[in-house]
Amino acid sequence: MSFGHRRGWWIGFLLAPALVTMAVFVAWPMLGALRYAFYDFHGLKIGGFVGLQNFVDVLGEPPYRGWTYTALWHNTIVFVSLMVLQNGVAYLLAFALLQGLPGHRVHRVIVFLPVVLSAVIVGFLWKLFLNPLFGLVNQALLLVGVHGPPWLGSEYTALGSLILVNTWHWLGFSTLVFLAGMQSVPAEILEAARLDGATNATLLRRIIWPLVAPSTTILFTLTFIGSFNWFELPYVMAGLNGSPGGATDVLGLYFYRTAFGSVSSGLQDFGHGSALAVLMFAFVGSCAAVALHVLRRREVAL
């Protein structure tokens, strides 16, 4: 037996546990969901084969059609807003922390602190803070004579409130990723730029931005996947129906209540639910792959 052959067996032996685990717990359920999407369901009992009907329903038949596109639109808003708010602010914050001003270590910890809380706790806390009657936010606004709106109850502010809370929760993570990227930029490059008279703004735009491209790639991809799979925060703060009146409905909530039922109806519809899951997976997977490919190309090796 040749060395290479034995090596092959050895590698196979080491890979097997991981592969089996992946196959059983990841690939198999996913293939299952794919199959379910083509069937009619009575509860968990599988009914007849219906071809593409479930997909046609969720994409083209009212009332599903409206729900699908509204949810997708909301996810898109969430993604764009988070890119600007969460990652944009994080970029500036990371640059500020990079300066090493007095107290920057404490600040770094403070900025990162909310990240360690679970989404359920964050959602619950902020739901209390935003309560129109005794919530912290409106009480504080009242001190300066402003009557705050019912943040989570108005269709104009509900989704925005959720986005801000999410930003509060994850800002520290984005900041840390950018900070790590900035710290790996060689100091002599920054010094040279400064000697040439570059201002902070120029530095941020022309020097650091292209050099932290790997961080941007990571954050873009994670924010994309996170935005389109958003579930915990809206679930805790707005409920499965995306209150008020579907103003905070996102694909995650829509999928969950379709497949598993909501409070007012224990009705489960695995067929349409699986069709939604498959569409979400295909959408997020393909977009993330394309984005990753494009973003990787702009990364420069130092």
């Binding site: 269709e155 129906n241 209150s243 008020p244 579907g246 007012s264 109806s265 009705l267 519809d269």
Partner: peptide, 17 residues
Amino acid sequence: RFDSPTGSELLSNGVQK
């Protein structure tokens, strides 16, 4: 509440709006 979408989810959503 026998079929999806249920009257309950349609009504609660509508009345909320």
